[in-house]
């Protein structure tokens, strides 16, 4: 790990100013991605501004939404009773997303910012990585690619965004509150990440010194049900091969309204609006579920190692739609 100066400010403004003033400075929160990247030599800040003691921890429950402090841990959010009542798929994604030890450390803000698990990105001795160094190429496209993305990618980069909880958070149209050198702003998650095929070296819209302070998560209306299905090799403690976050409201045997997002497939957490539109107001029909999944995956870019994900994602979504439409609210 490269030597760095360690700073531990007490206030958000101070932290933002400290990072903004130094191009080689960076925030440090739970550290579960960051320390790993620093040990790998992929990320080499000269100054670390530890924000883990800032007053950004805790959940405020409002009638229509949760205001989640950015430093709230995954474990804390999963334990919030309202999450179990009104955002079950967020709870399920959190619990499936990491081990207890990691959930006790990892923050919700940090989770949204997690870097790809691509082993080519994470090995600085691999020179071809457009995400790390623009225009250097992509070793993963011709390499071993099983845990890589098929949506929002092209031959320049197939990095996967591996977050689980970001998937349902995206599905319910969460927004993040950002404090930066120029003040505060609000960014919907749908506009927060940048797809790899729109520029592999840019991952999100945050600028240097921008700090996520809060995530606002709309609660699902009463009468909705939701669930998160994660398909992986191991029974626990593994990133998703594919996953599906589904929330819906039934009207008899008709899907009155729904939200869908997919994980394990995109360079960003993937909102499946085509599928939502195809299924909104329709009766439960497994064939249609599959067609909706195929529509989402129609734009997939695959390499030999990831080709299986197209079909698996369709199946994962279909299964979760079946489970959700059969479930009692």
């Amino acid at each position: 790990m490269r030597a760095f100066v360690y700073d531990c400010p007490d206030a958000v403004d101070e932290a933002v100013a400290s990072v903004a003033a130094d191009p080689q400075a960076a925030f440090l929160a739970g550290g579960t991605t960051q320390l790993d990247l620093m040990k790998d030599g992929v990320w080499t800040p000269d100054r670390l501004v530890d924000i883990s003691r800032l007053p950004l921890r805790g959940i405020l429950v409002e009638s229509q939404q949760l205001k989640v402090g950015a430093l709230t841990t995954m474990e804390q959010l999963a334990a919030e009773p309202v999450v179990a009542q009104r955002l079950m798929f967020v709870r399920e994604a959190l619990l499936a997303g990491a081990t207890v030890q990691l959930r006790n450390m990892a923050t919700i803000g940090g989770n949204l910012l997690q870097r790809t698990r691509c082993r080519y990105f994470r090995d600085p001795t691999v020179s071809a990585c457009n995400r790390r160094s623009p225009d250097s190429g992509c070793a993963a496209v011709d390499g071993v690619a099983r845990m890589h993305a098929v949506l929002g990618v092209d031959e320049r980069c197939i990095a996967l965004h591996a977050s689980d909880v970001a998937v349902p958070l995206l599905a319910v149209d969460s927004t993040v509150l950002v404090s930066g050198p120029t003040g505060q702003r609000r960014v919907p998650l749908s506009e927060f990440w940048v797809r790899a095929d729109e520029g592999p070296s840019i991952e999100n819209v945050l600028g240097h010194g921008d700090l996520i302070t809060e995530i606002d998560v709309p609660l699902l209306p009463n009468g909705w049900r939701s669930g998160y299905l994660k398909v992986r090799d191991r029974a626990s403690y593994e990133f998703a091969l594919t996953s599906a976050a589904v929330a819906l409201q039934m009207d008899g045997d008709m899907i009155a309204d729904l939200r869908i997002a997919l994980g394990g497939v995109g360079s960003v957490p993937w909102r499946a609006r085509e599928a939502e539109e195809m299924l909104r107001g329709t009766h439960v029909d497994p064939v249609r579920f599959e067609q909706a999944g195929r529509a989402v995956m129609a734009s997939a870019f695959t390499v030999p190692g990831t080709a299986f994900k197209v079909d698996l994602a369709v199946r994962t979504l279909s299964r979760q739609l079946l489970t959700m439409t059969e479930a009692t609210p």
Binding site: R119, T125, G143, V144, R234, Y237
Partner: peptide
């Protein structure tokens, strides 16, 4: 796994090479 072009170990971490866990 080995990178076919370079001979590099492609998944040499416990995050990428899976050992059975208790739940398995």
């Amino acid at each position: 796994l080995t990178d076919p072009d370079t001979g590099r170990v492609a998944n040499g971490t416990f995050g990428d090479y899976l050992l059975a866990v208790s739940a398995d």
